[in-house]
Design a binder for these strands. Structure first.
Lengths: 345, 345
DNA sequence: TGTTAGCACTCGAGGGTGTCGAGTGCTAAC
DNA sequence: GTTAGCACTCGACACCCTCGAGTGCTAACA
């Protein structure tokens, strides 16, 4: 892939960039005349045509039909993202906008995540998604069990970073509220400072030793808790934005896209798969999901206390403004990381 | 409005019904020939035409242009819903489908609500919404406070019906976990069996008397809790279904509609406004929201233990299949009420 | 050798025209 | 009161034409 760069001389690169830039703005095929005028390289359309012909042969451009302009191929976007795109700086206005709308006084993680998704979508006018920080990687500080009715209780897990999550779990009907409180204290004490998944295995024997008879019940409860803790939540905003782009003016296509967004399965998969890579860009068919193969997904991670705890991303047409999206995402990643680091102490 | 019935003789009614039925299916203007054939009244198209002309004059039909068929007006839908529509029975298959997909073994309210919304949307192919049972009308059984970090705690409210809700609240930094536990027990004891809103007023003085110094803090906490308990959650499923209907083939229109659905504000308003009326139907411009004025919203309430605790509804084009929607909603209302009544004991 | 002007060619978009068919309203006859 | 007949309307659709943007090729130029 990095061969691409050496394959193309500077001029071809500049022409390709001009074409991609133009196509990103207009969504209609770009002709040699336009490139000649727009790119201040002082070349005539004829020359540009020759170069464009080469670029087409090399697979960077595609021709919808003989006498239309050229359209960038996925390969071109890939090259653009990897080598050409000058990771645009945000304008002062944009940075200002983000600052103003990410309310740092908010004291709840969920609220911060929602705000982040909103800002991300508003800034880019694409669909945004933010993975809610995942507990499984954090250390447990407290697990509280609250009796709800005979047979069910709510478990609230608090991590050392202050992120919380709760789950309804089934409990043996025989347990009294007092029993539950006892168990609650016991498991908090045993799990404190451990990661939930690994702690369960190492700690269970101890628990079993201490409270013989109810051990099985506790064991089941911990498994319930672990299961629901490992469920990931995604905050999605701006799904309807996709209808602003002509590539989705076909109702059936838009429908498939939106239905996929609505279930969230693919988004969740992308975000969790990308949650340890600082930045990923999936262009068109690089998405496994068929309904997503003419859009692109860009993700970045965010941290708290120097450690990756989640990721977020933007979904738009393949012809998205990669420069802006990357700039916004990087900036937002830093902002969110700062806020969370403070919030979670 | 009920005059309408007397205004129209039986034959006009039957013709109108035939037109509405046909238009609901096809979404294209209905001509006299079609009515003549479809409705087995043995009348020639010419006769039908005379009647249709009258119906147009009376405001029940509209003519897109001179030589198209007629389209039902909102007034016609209103009449249809109020008087004509035979509140269709579900087919056995449909009832079976609902039974199969509403898993009665699920033991968590939230999950039941999500399932309900899903089934509702799948059955009708419109957008569905279900209001999560509201706590404010229920009696508190327990309020647990769980320390999360200095300055914040999570409050979990459990009602006598077993519905739970939690909220992050701010607490004075000076409170130790032990203090919090004490307060937690105190307010549970004081509020047990009362409705949250009214209890706060009546109980606060007692609390104030018992724990002088921290009373203000507790007071603030209770207000925080009350505020977030009165927030209503709505589960929405099938927003993208609207793109299946030609009336939303215009991207801009679809966009507005979906954006409105996405914020959920209007849906929430409709559901809460309707949460004490067994069934409501809002047709077209009967919706206050401009973006919703060419769709209809039908809602029903659901109960637990004989008492209304929430509502749910379906949103679709004005030309929706009211008969089916009403039948499904009524059936689902009973099903959900049954499930919740058992679940919440 | 790289660049450019010129030119014939292609093809979609858009506008105009004509036909077709569904539908109407009116009138007169049953 | 119902119906057949008829002239009329109007959108949908197919067809044709023109226009313009764009191409590829060739030959001339620096």
């Amino acid at each position: 892939m990095s061969d691409n760069k050496s394959l193309l001389d500077i001029r071809k690169m500049r022409i390709l960039q001009a074409i991609v830039d133009d196509y990103i703005m207009t969504a209609s095929p770009v002709g040699s005349r336009t490139v000649s005028k727009r790119s201040d390289m002082g070349l005539s359309p004829a020359t540009i045509r020759n170069e464009m012909s080469d670029l087409t042969e090399l697979g960077f451009l595609e021709q919808p039909h003989t006498s239309a302009g050229r359209v960038p191929s996925e390969k071109a976007y890939r090259l653009y993202v990897n080598h050409i795109m000058d990771s645009a700086k945000l304008t002062d206005d944009e940075a200002e906008y983000i600052k103003r709308h990410l309310d740092t006084r908010v004291h709840e993680v969920g609220e911060v995540i929602r705000q982040t998704a909103k800002v991300l979508s508003d800034m880019t006018n694409y669909t945004s998604m933010v993975l809610v920080p995942q507990l499984s990687s954090m250390k447990v500080k407290r697990i509280s069990l609250i009796p709800v009715s005979d047979g069910t209780a709510m478990a609230v897990v608090v991590t050392n970073t202050g992120v919380t999550k709760n789950a309804m779990i089934r409990i043996p009907e025989s347990l009294s509220p007092e029993d539950i409180e006892k168990i609650s204290k016991l498991i908090t004490q045993k799990l404190d400072g451990h990661r939930l998944a690994e702690a369960i295995e190492s700690v269970l024997p101890t628990i079993r030793a201490e409270i013989g008879e109810q051990a099985d019940a506790v064991c089941g409860m911990l498994e319930d808790i672990e299961r629901s803790m490992s469920e990931t939540d995604v905050e999605v905003v701006g799904a309807s934005n996709i209808l602003d782009y002509p590539e989705y003016s076909d109702a059936a296509k838009a429908r498939n896209f939106l239905a996929e967004i609505e279930t969230g399965d693919y988004l969740q998969k992308v975000l969790t798969d990308s949650s340890d890579v600082e930045m990923t860009v999936r262009i068109g068919t690089e998405n496994e999901n068929p309904d997503m193969q003419d859009c692109s997904v860009v993700t970045v991670t965010y941290k708290a206390g120097g450690k990756n705890i989640g990721s977020m991303g933007v979904i738009g047409p393949t012809r998205m403004d990669y420069g802006k999206v990357v700039a916004v995402l990087k900036y937002m990643s830093r902002s969110l990381s700062d806020i969370l680091s403070k919030l979670l102490k």
